Amino acid sequence: MNIIAVANQKGGVGKTTVTMQLAAIMSRRLRVLVVDVDPQQSTVWWAENARARLPFDFAGNQHPNVLARMRDLGVDYDVVIVDTPGSLEDTPRLETALDASDFVIVPMTPEPLAVEPTMRTITRLIEPRHLRHAVLLNRIDGRLGSQLDTWREVLDQTFGVPRFEGYLRQYKTHADAPVLGQLVTSVGDNRRTQGSIADVTRLGYEMTEQLSSATNGAW
Rank of each mutant, 00 (worst) to 15 (best):
F58M: 13
T121C: 06
R69E: 13
H133F: 10
D72H: 05
M70T: 08
P64C: 01
M70E: 06
P85D: 00
L98E: 06
H130W: 14
I126S: 06
T118K: 09
N61D: 15
P117W: 06
V115H: 10
L98K: 01
A97G: 05
D102S: 10
L125K: 07
D78R: 01
A52H: 14
E127I: 15
P64I: 00
V66D: 00
A100S: 14
R93Y: 01
H63F: 07
I126Y: 03
L73C: 05
Q62S: 07
M108F: 07
V115Y: 08
I105A: 08
A97L: 02
N49C: 10
I122D: 07
R51H: 08
G60W: 08
L88F: 13
S87F: 03
L94W: 02
A114C: 10
R132M: 11
T91P: 04
P110N: 03
R120V: 13
F103Q: 00
V75Q: 09
P107R: 05
I126N: 04
F103W: 05
L54W: 04
E95L: 02
H63M: 11
D78W: 09
E127Y: 12
P110Y: 02
R129P: 11
P112I: 02
D83E: 10
N65K: 07
P112D: 11
N65E: 12
